[in-house]
């Protein structure tokens, strides 16, 4: 029975849908966690300490990495099959069909931008936090405790170039989600003419909430860096 997940086109799309859904849920969790940093730096560091190198956080990290890898591998696999199905001979004239979103036709490209941002992000934070704790180090390269996430945020977003890179990354995630969220309902079959406008609205709202939720932390910490008295927390 499980074979159809790999062997059929609809099954492969189900995998994309479910792994995508899992990653969206993770984004919502991560965003909620980040927002704590705006209100209380101590609270944020408590969450960081809670998500350190303990077995439940590690299991969750492995499952999460698995989700990312499955989504990515299937995306590449599906795109290669699709390119083959499209054929070597391309149309000389192409147009943008009415009502077709740009992001829907460029999910792999946007996805790669998201992955590049993810790699940078893993280096900026995960490498200095959970990995250092796993390696048994009590301080990271910056001399901070691995659970001191706030200091990493503060230092990183005091640099305008990282603020811009992160905002571009969040924008890529926004584009990915505007197509991805409603698409995951379509791929499991939960969609019809009545629900398309609703699902697309939900997608846009979800994508925008996730964008704003992540961006606000970057903006607040940048403002704090240039004007320490502006945001007292």
């Amino acid at each position: 029975m499980g074979n159809f997940l790999c062997s059929s086109s609809v099954g492969r799309k189900l995998i994309m849908s479910l792994s995508g859904c899992f990653l969206v849920l993770f984004l919502i969790f991560h965003m909620s966690m980040n927002i704590a940093a705006i209100f209380s730096e101590d609270a944020y560091n408590m969450i960081c300490a809670f998500l350190g190198a303990n077995w439940y956080a590690l299991v969750a990290t492995v499952i999460l990495a698995g989700g990312v890898i499955v989504h990515l591998v299937y995306a590449v696999l599906l795109t290669l099959q699709n390119r083959k199905a499209r054929g070597a001979q391309r149309y000389a004239v192409t147009v943008k069909e009415e009502g077709v979103a740009w992001s829907s036709k460029n999910m792999l490209l946007i996805g790669f931008i998201v992955v590049l941002g993810l790699l940078l992000h893993l280096y900026n934070f995960w490498y200095h936090m959970q990995l250092q704790e796993l390696l048994g180090n009590h301080t990271n390269d910056f001399g901070y405790s691995p659970a001191d996430g706030v200091s990493l945020i503060r230092d990183l977003f005091a640099q305008p170039v990282f603020c811009v890179i992160y905002l571009v990354w969040f924008a890529a995630i926004w584009f990915h989600l505007t197509h991805g969220v409603w698409s995951m309902f379509q791929s499991v079959g939960f969609a019809n003419a009545t629900w398309y406008p609703r699902l697309k609205l939900i997608s846009n709202i979800m994508a925008t909430i996730i964008f704003l939720g992540f961006a606000v932390v970057v903006v607040v910490f940048y403002i704090k860096s240039i004007c320490p008295a502006c945001c007292v927390a």
């Binding site: 599906l78 699709n82 199905a85 077709v100």
Partner: peptide
């Protein structure tokens, strides 16, 4: 699938 058609990615271009 056997005949080599691609996987649907829900762009909606077909419908248009």
């Amino acid at each position: 699938d056997e005949l080599g058609f691609g996987n649907c990615s829900n762009t909606g271009a077909c419908e248009a």
